[in-house]
Design a protein around this nucleic acid. Sequence first.
RNA 1: GGCGCCAUGGUGUAAUUGGUUAACACGUCGCCCUCUCAAGGCGAAGAGUUCGGGUUCGAUCCCCGAUGGCGCUACCA
Length: 485
Amino acid sequence: MPESASTPRVRFAPSPTGYLHVGGARTALFNWLYARHFGGTLILRIEDTDFERSSEEMVEGILEGMRWLGLNWDEGPFYQSKRLDLYRQTAEKLLAGGHAYYCFCTKEELEQRRAESVAAGRPPMYDRRCRRIESATAAKRKAAGEACAVRFAVPEGGSTSFDDAVFGKVEFANAEIEDFVLLRSDGIPTYHLSVVADDIDMRLTHIIRGADHISNTPKQVLQYRALGAPMPVFAHVPLILGPDKTRLSKRHGATSVIAYKEMGIVPEAFRNFLALLGWTPGAAGKDADGKDREIFGSDELIKLFSLDGISKSNAVFDNDKLAWFNTEYIRAYDAAELLPLIEEEWIKAEFRPARSNGEVISAIELVKPRARNLKDFATAFRAYFSDAFEYDPAAVAKFLKDEAVRALLVELSAHYASDAQFTEASTEQILRSFAEEKGVKAGALINGARVALTGQAVAPSLFAVMVNLGRDRVIKRLAAAATIQ
RNA sequence: GGCGCCAUGGUGUAAUUGGUUAACACGUCGCCCUCUCAAGGCGAAGAGUUCGGGUUCGAUCCCCGAUGGCGCUACCA
């Protein structure tokens, strides 16, 4: 194992300014996989220092998303809003070490200067004017009650670099890094300060996060050095894009993880799909003849996961592939495993099955190979669970258009009354000899009967359906064939 | 604009890290099966690796440049 020998401590640190989106979920997943792979610790930290935009409701939404995906954490959730003292102390340390200074510029002044710089074609960086104030004078002004922020004093020359576990060496000229604010004038830390203070305090060994943080990293590296703290391993994960290759956003459809739950996606399928977006297990993921295996349960994902399987380029979220994973999981699950998930769909659809538990299980077993989505069980498959179902107009138009067929089905229903065994063989035998006797093609009756029994043109083998529904229902539904709208 | 990162079929990724007819999965199309639709089986189309230069006997792979995409560029995170 190339990674550090001691057990890693990693974190997922969302800011509760929105629901758990797919990018965040994948970051959480990778951290979780990493921690579980090495028997390490996953810490959940809520970055809510932006009081304006953060809310408890969003925190709840994020936790719900994580629970749905089965991502459990070991410590936390910690709230940054409750750890303000730590950040202030850290800022003091930086100040005392000469790595930070008070800045008395007001927000308005800064905005104005920035606008001027941009207009003049200069980079809109802070001009460091307060850095030149004697620290004694600065302290006096502050003591006198003048409002001020604390800025980090970025070294004037040279460069700052770090070795990213995914991207390799990344280097930034210090001249490009502005003297960023650590503590706002109201005493609330900015992200740059709070992450570093917390990551150090929580003894994190690996920082696994979105690649959108690459440019922030040198600012953090500088602080680790100034604070004399051990440097963690940074691992930046490429971003997830929409089908048009722009950053995933609402206009691409669902962006919240919970929306996928609501769409009828099996959580394990979603997790599997997400894991393979920007990561591959390499040779371990191939089977004997070199073909890729892509269905990995959580244990296997944990076993195979490694930072060096993470790719450097952004990945496009492909709904078709997700749908494929979903069907694979639905097919692979036992009916009993599927039942709780299906029941949620029934509740949402205000549908109640009218059959015994055993019958429900065998009906699920019967139809699940044809399911693409958990929703199917509450929509197209209703006829297997209750008599309260509707006929798909397209199916009726396709197979029950012919009045003669409908009449024959009604007539056929009577033949089943005397079928005591009611097995697949007996039901088929009865239908085929009836068709022969009437001089019609068995297929026409089979297709018509399928619609009469299930309301759908798509169903499992007709005789398996008959056996599952039971004789009484079959007779009743066939007898009603003439009146189906 | 500046800085950084990335670049293999429509999508996700492989390619023993310079020697392959550039592989697999999803998707697409066709055929088989058949009572429908899935599934499954078989097969096909689809990239000569963004482009242009190097280095080399030989580049997907190394170097340079261009282009494109993405990210950052706040007293947001």
